Amino acid sequence: MADQLTEEQIAEFKEAFSLFDKDGDGTITTKELGTVMRSLGQNPTEAELQDMINEVDADGNGTIDFPEFLTMMARKMKDTDSEEEIREAFRVFDKDGNGYISAAELRHVMTNLGEKLTDEEVDEMIREADIDGDGQVNYEEFVQMMTAK
């Protein structure tokens, strides 16, 4: 299944994987998964984290390695993001709930994920998604960005 991913997608997933893999040992533990999910405003229980890991832990060693992570991402993409997942993601970014993602809100979430971005990089990300040019990202623009192939 992971063989249907483009090189660009694999590179993006590698970057995402390293955000989860806090200690850089090449595997994601339940603790690391929990840290990232909490930084995104989720509050999973230990059991939920274990279930999430077990779902993709092909070799049964209790952690997720990069090939397992790729399989999980490929699977998720095949079920292409349901509207509800996209709306949920939008809410994570839209901290003040005004229906727009500002540069400050984007920077806040990315920083929580451990991504240190310059102001230019954040502005560039907003510009790429900002179709109507108002300097922020509304829900429609967010959907376009998330579903762009």
Rank of each mutant, 00 (worst) to 15 (best):
A103D: 11
D123R: 10
T71M: 15
R91H: 07
P44G: 02
L33H: 07
M73F: 14
G133D: 06
L19G: 04
E85C: 07
E8R: 01
K76L: 03
E128Q: 01
I64M: 10
L33G: 00
E68S: 08
E12H: 09
G24F: 10
G62A: 14
M77G: 09
L5M: 11
N54V: 04
S102D: 07
M52E: 06
R75M: 14
K31G: 09
E115L: 00
L33R: 04
M125S: 05
K76V: 08
V92D: 04
T30D: 05
A103G: 10
V109I: 10
E141L: 00
L106R: 00
R38N: 00
E12M: 02
T147G: 15
N61K: 07
I28A: 03
E12G: 10
T118E: 11
A2F: 15
F17Y: 05
E140H: 06
E55S: 14
L113Y: 04
R38S: 08
A47L: 07
D94I: 04
A47I: 09
I53G: 04
E48R: 06
Q9D: 06
I10C: 15
L19I: 05
I131Q: 06
I10A: 00
N61G: 07
A129Y: 03
M72V: 13
P67T: 11
A11Y: 00
K22C: 12
Q144H: 09
D51V: 02
R127S: 07
I64H: 05
N98V: 03
V143S: 03
E121T: 01
P44E: 05
V122P: 00
E141M: 05
E12W: 07
R107Q: 05
E140Y: 12
Q9H: 11
E15G: 11
V56E: 07
L40K: 13
E83Q: 04
T63V: 08
E68D: 09
A129V: 12
R75L: 15
I28Q: 01
I86S: 07
D119W: 07
M145T: 11
D25R: 15
V109E: 01
M52A: 00
M37N: 15
T71L: 15
L5R: 07
E88H: 05
D123P: 09
K95W: 10
G62N: 02
G24A: 11
K95V: 04
K31S: 06
D23E: 11
S82D: 00
A104D: 01
D3F: 00
V56M: 10
N112I: 10
V36K: 00
F13K: 00
D51F: 15
V122E: 04
N54R: 05
T29L: 04
R87P: 08
K14S: 05
K14E: 12
L113E: 03
P67R: 08
D81H: 00
Q136F: 02
G97H: 03
G133Q: 11
E48N: 07
P67D: 07
M37K: 10
M110I: 09
M73T: 13
S102G: 11
V143N: 04
A2I: 05
F90C: 05
L113D: 00
A16Y: 09
N112C: 03
T111I: 12
D119P: 02
M37E: 01
V36P: 01
G62R: 13
E121C: 00
D130P: 01
K149P: 12
L5H: 02
F13H: 01
E7D: 14
T27M: 10
A129T: 07
E121K: 08
D94Q: 04
K116A: 00
I101L: 11
N54Y: 13
I101P: 01
V137M: 15
D21Q: 08
V109W: 09
E128R: 02
T30C: 01
A16Q: 07
E55Q: 10
G97F: 03
E15R: 03
F17M: 01
Q4K: 11
N138E: 14
E140R: 02
S102N: 13
D132I: 00
D134C: 08
Q4W: 00
F93S: 01
G26N: 02
M110K: 06
D119Y: 11
I28T: 09
F66C: 13
I131M: 12
E32L: 06
G62C: 11
R91Y: 15
K78E: 12
N61L: 03
D130W: 00
Y100R: 09
V122W: 04
F20R: 15
E83N: 00
T63R: 10
R107H: 11
D132F: 14
F20V: 15
A2W: 03
E84A: 15
N54E: 04
I53L: 15
E46V: 11
T45Y: 02
S18W: 08
D25S: 09
N43D: 10
T45K: 13
S102K: 01
N98I: 08
F17I: 10
E46S: 03
G97Q: 01
Q136T: 08
V143L: 11
N43T: 15
I126L: 10
D57G: 12
D59A: 13
A2P: 08
I101Q: 03
N98Q: 03
E120V: 11
L113R: 01
N54P: 08
E120Q: 02
A129L: 04
E15K: 08
A11P: 03
Q42W: 04
K76C: 15
Q136L: 10
R107N: 01
D59W: 04
D81A: 14
D23H: 12
D130K: 01
A58Q: 01
M145Q: 13
E48Q: 04
A148F: 15
G41Y: 00
K22R: 13
I126F: 09
S39W: 15
R75I: 12
T35K: 01
D23Y: 11
L49Y: 15
A89K: 02
T63H: 03
G60I: 07
I64D: 06
M73A: 13
V137T: 08
P67M: 01
